[in-house]
Design a protein around this nucleic acid. Structure first.
Lengths: 234, 234
DNA sequence: ATCCGCGATTGATCCAAATCAATAAGTGGC
DNA sequence: GCCACTTATTGATTTGGATCAATCGCGGAT
């Protein structure tokens, strides 16, 4: 954590949940907020730490994860610039983080004081609606993740991931993966070897053509069919 | 859906989120609320239905689930008496359910009008705190579920489930399972055969002694070790 | 440039859970 | 009470992914 700066209210407003803040409220939050720069790999907070702040991603990318008893990690969520990082949109002052958070690359974060946030939550209707919606979206996303893990076939999971990346890139058929393969594997709860083999299989099948970090989708329809798990294996 | 009755405000207050309601607010909610009785197996609502109401379980038990493209279901959550059922603690009027909901046995539900609930959410600090906490708990639970699914070994999952049932029963070493095995298997994303074999294995190992629906925990410590996945297989 | 170390790929093998199949034990309806 | 149907158990077999092992390739450090 180097380089902690003072925060202009406008920066706080740049996050969707805070759009509806009054000038006064934005200034109030800003007074006890700060930004921090972190290097790739830095740990932002740990599971079970008391959540004194809510964290927002100004730039860069983070992974939220847990480690199992064997010491290997499972990624639950990836957060990109412009989004809220911290899991408990914390109100009560003893809430703790459910996940570990680490930077995937050099990043900048905004820290909002938890008690201030709670105050604003009660003061501002737009903010509390926004926070509840954010949490609801979080729930939906987790449900989708569980559904993904419950469909056994690795190829389906990988197809679903590549398809979602394809959508994130406005349906351009050529794009870079937002993560390295090791982390994709963790997110999909697969071993890197299995991921590698699936991607090769897509190549052999003419579904995609992948180089190191570039993916070229050759057969969008087939990819989507596989992603939707419509019994479409060979 | 038979037998729709009028709701006394006290019944609404019996749910934790609504404890803090003023008399006036409770009456206001009650005016547009109703209760309904459903039979075992009845579908309460479907995934993607618009959520006009929030549902609360007065008595009985529900399962929240999705069906995959092959038509077989995955249970995400079980709801017992006294708890909120519906997934989106819905504020915006076009929110939809993320999961299907069906009664596991004859049950009674309380329906709260979504628009009224949104109004109360903004009016009453205790209610909105309660709703946010409920949602946070929901998120934590889903994260735990994902962690459970990510630990590969079936025996660990089953041990974790039995151990959690043991805790639910105030650490009594003899208790009835709250679900039949088919549903437990679905909840754990396992095949019933696999669940059956795991339970038999626990028996052979002297960890538990199980009859049809009764479980008798013989070695609490070993069960807990397995549940925590501490590399404790044979 | 060279070395080091990690990420990625590929191959060979193993193993746990899914699947297929059959039977047994409940459960509810008439 | 008996039949039909669902749930549960057990066995045999298959299979997909994990694991083990080796190599390659690339980026960063020196």
């Amino acid at each position: 954590m180097l380089d902690s700066r003072h925060v202009p209210p406008a920066q706080i407003r740049s996050f969707k949940v805070f759009e509806g803040l009054t000038d006064r409220q934005a200034r109030q939050l800003a007074r006890r907020a700060r930004t921090e720069c972190v290097d790739a790999g830095d740990l932002l907070y740990r599971q079970r730490d008391v959540a004194h702040h809510a964290y927002f991603c100004i730039s860069g990318q983070f992974r939220l994860f847990r480690e199992n008893s064997a010491g290997c990690e499972k990624i639950f969520r990836i957060v990109d610039a412009g989004n809220c990082i911290s899991d408990p949109v914390s109100l009560s002052d003893d809430r703790r983080f459910s996940l570990n958070c680490a930077a995937l690359r050099a990043s900048e974060v905004l820290l909002i004081d938890a008690a201030e946030l709670a105050r604003v939550f009660h003061q501002n209707e737009a903010v509390r609606t926004g926070m509840l919606n954010e949490l609801s979206r979080r729930v939906d996303h987790l449900i989708d993740h569980i559904e993904m893990l419950s469909m056994d076939k690795a190829k389906y999971r990988v197809a679903a991931f590549i398809f979602s990346e394809y959508l994130r890139n406005e349906r351009r058929i050529k794009f870079r993966l937002s993560l390295n393969k090791k982390h994709i594997a963790s997110y999909l709860s697969l071993q890197p070897e299995t991921l590698s083999r699936c991607i090769r299989w897509f190549g052999e099948q003419g579904v995609t053509d992948s180089t190191a970090h570039e993916v070229h989708v050759l057969d969008v329809e087939r990819l989507e069919t596989l992603a939707l798990n419509a019994q479409a294996l060979p």
